[in-house]
Design a protein around this nucleic acid. Structure first.
Lengths: 334, 334
DNA sequence: GTGAAAGCGCTAACAC
DNA sequence: GTGTTAGCGCTTTCAC
């Protein structure tokens, strides 16, 4: 800025005023303004964000803590988040919250710093109390997404897990299925809302959940594989399987195929999440979809509101979005 | 820091020295040091990164420009990148380079700034000359990954696309396939290396590529779908299909299934990338895998070297990694 | 062994 | 309408 001043024959403050488009307070001679702008271009001026930050300017960066964005669901959510953030002029700083060796590093680096305006937590990290504690001690406001059954620690956006599963059970029941099993992929934070809803629904409709009809597995393709193996070996195998995630559901499809079980003829399968691959699995997967873009948009807007408007409450609370059932080719009558 | 000084009865400079572990230059009385450290903890001191940045300290942030991380391949690469970066104490700032409306925003916000130590470009963005220009004018060093056939603008890490396709053709030929088609998913930057290698190999082995055996489609599940439709309708349909990406390959599998074409009995399919779903497609996909983690690790290390050591050359150059063929269940004799 | 002072780039009172 | 000055939090000479 001093250089610009030198070139255009004014002081640094005038340069600053011109470059910041003088907030009405004071006027700048049109001719001076011209000269300064030209000089700025000439010397290739780039503002120094640290200097601005030091003076309290927002960094226009949103910190995002994602648990595992190898998970296609979170990968897509992250994409949506980047898009939403950018629409508001924000960039994304990635913090990783995977339980791991160097773990201590990721978070503090994001949080210790005032280099972030707000933090968005995607997915449940309650298995890492340190992360939660760090987030609480953060100066930046935190907005959480998909926290499941864990205690509400921040303003939170979530989905009606129960509603999704109820819809799935309803669909299967209406198709005539009575033997419905549940592949319960382990969700972060020990969220069993989907499984609980399944149990509740099956008990309400059929009296009780048959032995072995709930199979807890890892949330992975392998996990789905394993769940199906368990079901297939049962004395009275189910005619339908609901998986708590699409990843597991695709694993179920894969394992069924490997065993010669034809979906949906021999077995109906319903997933949860509607990840992109779901529409292209074989057969295309019936699944529960949440309004991800809307939820993300809501989270980003809330985060920004918290930054800009100190009157907006930072109190923990949950806003719940309703999912919808997407019926494809993996479900039919038994 | 002034507060700490006040509490412990020393000046800010002493506090600074203690907190930075006095680089040998000057010694601090053990007792003072103790007192200062205690005070620091007491007041909950957090260094201000802007102030440090203003003084020229590195930000320990790596800017990453990803083209579309909805793509599972890039999503995984990003995960690997975050991991590698963190191993070196760096965080990731996401810049989006998708051709879009607000496009102008993403890049400058990442680049204008000295708030980033280096930039890693994942995937080809030559369709957006502005982005390339911005990158060139960036003060931070740039390392590129997967640039395909585009001019080498930065130190670049890439994969031997040709080698991968050659291996795929070899496998199919050795299985007895003579009618091999190529589902050419549009790669960013108009990279046709995979397609070119296919043409080269088929011409060398079988004289010429039959009409309609190369089908250019979008790099998506739909694209694969469309490619297979084209092949199936040919008077002399191929007995094997190589797809330039796994995404397209999975689309091919899906479309084949829908038409009653049994893979691999009626049709062998080979993909490229080995995305996670590839091992769980139906049937499991034979594909070409690149050493993603290694490549990413190399890129990150190079980027950091460029930051820390000004003697390391920033000249454009390419380092090529060799892919390997992963044979699964989607290939057999014709 | 510790303090005082200057300066990193920028903005905002406060002069004039 | 423009310049001067001080200060954001930190590090680093330079004095003592």
């Amino acid at each position: 800025m001093r250089d610009i001043g030198a070139v255009s024959g004014v002081s640094a403050s005038t340069v600053s005023r011109v470059l910041n488009d003088a907030p009405s307070k004071v006027a700048i001679a049109a001719e001076t303004r011209e000269r300064v702008l030209r000089a700025a271009r000439q010397v290739g001026y780039r503002p120094n964000p640290h200097a601005r930050g030091l003076r309290g300017a927002p960094t226009m960066m949103l910190g995002v803590i994602v648990r595992d964005f190898g998970d296609p669901f979170f990968a897509d959510a992250l994409e949506a988040l980047a898009r939403a953030a950018r629409a508001h002029g924000y960039n994304i700083v990635l913090g990783h919250a995977r339980a791991e060796e160097g773990d201590a590093l990721g978070l503090p680096a994001v949080l210790d710093t005032r280099s972030i305006d707000a933090i968005i937590l995607m997915g449940n990290v309650h298995d890492q109390p340190q992360v939660i504690a760090d987030l609480h001690s953060s100066l930046a406001p935190v907005v959480a997404l998909w926290q499941g059954t864990s205690p509400v620690e921040f303003p939170t956006i979530d989905v009606d897990d129960r509603g999704g599963v109820v819809a799935a059970v309803e669909l299967l029941a209406s198709l005539g299925h009575g033997k419905i099993a549940f592949a319960s992929a382990n969700l972060p934070g020990g969220n069993t809302r989907r499984e609980d809803a399944y149990v509740e629904q099956v008990e309400a409709r059929f009296g009780q959940v048959p032995e072995g009809y709930v199979h807890r597995v890892a949330n992975s393709l392998e996990g789905g594989d394993e769940a199906l193996a368990g079901f297939a070996d049962l004395p009275e195998p189910p005619t339908a399987v609901i998986a708590s995630t699409d990843i597991a559901a695709v694993g179920v499809l894969h394992a069924a195929f490997a065993r010669g079980i034809v979906v949906p003829r021999d077995l109906s399968v319903v997933g949860f999440d509607d990840i992109p691959i779901a529409a292209y699995s074989i057969p295309a997967l019936t699944t529960v979809r949440m309004p991800v873009a809307e939820m993300i948009g809501d989270a980003v807007e809330l985060a920004i509101a918290l930054v800009k408007d100190s009157t907006v409450s930072r109190a923990p609370r949950v806003r719940v979005f309703a999912p919808s059932l997407v019926v494809r080719d993996s479900t039919s009558g038994p």
